[in-house]
Design a binder for these strands. Sequence first.
RNA 1: GGUGAGGUGGAUGAGUGGCUGAAAUCAGUAGUUUGCUAAACUGCCGUACGGGUUAAACUGUACCGCGGGUUCGAAUCCCGCCCUCACCGCCA
Length: 421
Amino acid sequence: MLQLATLRNDPAAVRERLAIRNFKDLHLVDEILSADDHRRKLSFQFDETKAQINAASKEIGQLMAGGRKDEAEARKSDVDGLKKQLAPIEAELAVVEKNVTELLVRLPNLPSPLVPAGKTPEDNEVVRTGGSMPVLPAGSAPHWDLAKKYDLIDFELGNKITGSGFPVYKGKGAKLQRALIQYFLDFNTAAGYTEYMPPHLVNEASAYGTGQLPDKEGQMYHVTEDNLYLIPTAEVPVTNLYRDVILRDADLPVKMTAYTPCFRREAGSYGKDVRGLNRLHQFDKVEIVQLAHPSRSYDVLDEMVAHVEKLVQSLGLHYRILRLCGGDMGFTSALTYDFEVYSAAQERWLEVSSVSNFESYQANRAKIRFKEDGKTQFVHTLNGSSLALPRILACLLENNQDGNGIVLPVALHPYFGSEMI
RNA sequence: GGUGAGGUGGAUGAGUGGCUGAAAUCAGUAGUUUGCUAAACUGCCGUACGGGUUAAACUGUACCGCGGGUUCGAAUCCCGCCCUCACCGCCA
């Protein structure tokens, strides 16, 4: 969530920034400020009254010790009166404090100045394009046909044992998944990211820490029996490794990478978007996460984008990098770059990575801080996919089909053990 | 799942009603000194929200797993919850 100080310092600027992402409830800014004002007044009253009570209590102790019982009793009745005053203040303060937080959580992050105005994906800015447009031979097929032809993925079996959106990878299909995961992890650790294998279920505090709760409650699978959530991305457990931690400035940046399956309910999705590997309830992804010094976070973002770009390039895919417009950006992000690769058989771009700077928005929720020159402040958190597997696989299959099989990029040969499927 | 023990500041660990926001040790940090791959000594060293100040200094409140209760006063007593550990049971 945003820091109250940000709102207090320049509410007009906050409204202006929020307008970039077409945020409608701009009145929340003033509501929060006046609620906070109220909070501060009550808090002051509470503190003052409580100070009197504390002082009196101390005195009573001394009077009792000195055997001056009558005076002590008199002071006790003073305290009684103060406590009667305090009760309503305390009750109201609790309500107001809760109210301030609830309102504040409803504000999305402020878009960085680089974010273009706009409402829909069409308004996203193409930053650059790379690789070359694949030319397919006659009779080429979309990946769901190829997956069947080469017996790589069995969607029907997935339907049978779980449901749609839960594919079963088989034989070389399964091995290719494993090869991709290992290749991605090696690529990331070579760039200085520490590899983690986190739990795939998280508790409520973790889901709140990275902003999945309360906004995206319905998007996660919820194990109600134990009140745990299946992770929608490794970002959640990995970022939360540092929840409630105060680092030293010398510790920054913290660079982490993890492979995990990701679970998403994707309520409301339908149509050709969900065909084959395009949109799944369970998929595999390798994620990179960094905790950065605020003054360096945009350099770090550029570095992460360059890192993912090299990885995409090494797979020989035609790609483009988009700077998301205000209307298309995630709730918690300040600036997001999406990577899309071109699916030749489907003739459409597929998102395979999303690299974002959350500035202090997540850090404020998760209380991830660092100390510099004696001052404690929030880190900036960043993360990106490096990479999500299904759509990469879709493009690899479609773009590299030559009638006899699938020609794999050189980078994967040592991991897959052969050059073709 | 059963039984028992326990959750205190970065770590270890004292603290069973007021002198404790919390001893001591370690780690960290600033400095002094002697000097050689380090030792000794001294100071500082939790977080949040307020008041105050140009900024400090200074100062108030809350927090000893979480929530509630008893009391003039709670880390300390009571209740509920969560978690951890040990042993047993089960089991990859």
